[in-house]
């Protein structure tokens, strides 16, 4: 990005000295809802937090292409096939917008991708679950994208300008994703017995992993405090999870499906749906690399990068030849 020259100038080290006055001035700007732009002074921890969060978000989009991509060639109608291909393509596009936003913080996409491939960077735990039937494509659109939207809408007001702008674009484009998924579920639920069974089975498998997408409960979350103070995050994990449940349970009822939580009940006093205990051990295991598809997802991404190396080499070699041809002609 055009900011790198400034960010990595000879006095970069001096600039990183975070004296209290700068820090206070920075916090005042955040409190006044000013946006922080790439070249602005920012605490090193703010930059680190953003790089981690934005790159994880980008990796999730790229890895997230796999479970849905698994059904593009088997989509049951041409309309569904086109919509799914366009959706998975959007996910790649969103990954690219997000990598571009992270690059404004002085880290190259190649570095972020290498961190992912080296297993040093995380991506959303949800994409480590398999898509076993066509109904999973409906469930992902409805639930996974529904959960993602809950998370992403507040990010459109994130204090870091390039991230907020990328999220505005992402949210605008993603509005069709959840509807696409819900429409698939609705069609299955109005279909024959086998289709309805498929829909219920998908909800049974995706419900709990979707609740885990919002991250650990607030009491156990490491990053929430500073992220909130810096207005990178505007709602806590538990708040977003509750919003998601409140929005989704009536949608499940409309489909005639049963949410796989025997403890789920509407609490008249709070006006919220109360849910049963989430299996955080499962979440920890999936994040630690032990989900059903972690190894498969990473292997596939590594192989794609390796298989494409000769193409990228060729493009670079051609660009070099063209440059020298232009120089020779000049």
């Amino acid at each position: 990005m055009y900011t790198q020259g400034l960010n990595q100038g000879p006095d970069a080290a001096d600039r990183r000295i975070e004296d209290a006055a700068l820090l206070q001035r920075f916090q005042e700007r955040i409190d006044a809802e000013e946006r922080i732009e790439p070249n602005d002074w920012m605490p090193e921890a703010y930059r680190r937090t953003l790089v981690r969060q934005i790159s994880q978000h980008a990796h999730s989009e790229i890895i997230g292409m796999q479970p849905e991509g698994n059904w593009i060639t088997r989509a049951p109608s041409l309309r569904r096939k086109a919509a799914l291909l366009a959706k998975v393509q959007d996910e790649c596009g969103h990954g690219l917008y997000l990598y571009a936003a992270a690059e404004t913080l002085g880290v190259a996409r190649e570095e972020m991708v290498e961190q992912l491939l080296a297993g040093k960077a995380k991506y959303s735990s949800i994409f480590n679950y398999p898509t076993l039937t066509w109904a999973d494509i409906g469930a992902i659109g409805w639930l996974v994208d529904g959960a993602a939207i809950m998370n992403q809408i507040p990010l459109c007001r994130c204090s870091y300008g390039p991230y907020a702008r990328a999220m505005i674009r992402v949210c605008k484009e993603e509005s069709f994703h959840q509807r696409q998924g819900y429409e698939i579920m609705l069609t299955l639920c109005r279909g024959n017995g086998a289709q309805k069974e498929m829909a219920q089975d998908a909800l049974n498998r995706w419900w709990w992993p979707c609740l885990m997408m919002f991250g650990p409960p607030d009491a156990a979350s490491q990053h929430t405090d500073t992220s909130t103070r810096w207005k990178i995050k505007r709602f806590t994990n538990d708040e977003l999870r509750q919003k998601f449940i409140d929005a989704t349970v009536p949608q499940a009822h409309f489909l005639g499906l049963t949410v796989p939580d025997p403890d789920l009940r509407f609490d008249e006093a709070t006006g919220h749906w109360a849910h049963g205990a989430i299996d955080w051990e499962e979440f920890r295991q999936v994040v630690a690399g032990n989900g059903p598809c972690n190894a498969q997802r990473m292997e596939r991404r590594r192989r794609t990068e390796e298989d494409g190396a000769w193409v990228r080499d060729a493009a670079r070699a051609f660009a070099e030849k063209e440059k020298s041809r232009h120089r020779a002609a000049a």
Binding site: V88, Q89, R300, D307
Partner: peptide, 19 residues
Amino acid sequence: LSEWCGKAPLMEEEMALAN
């Protein structure tokens, strides 16, 4: 072309193949 999805040699090319 849809079989390429997620396997393109550059992420930018994912977009082109899908289009």
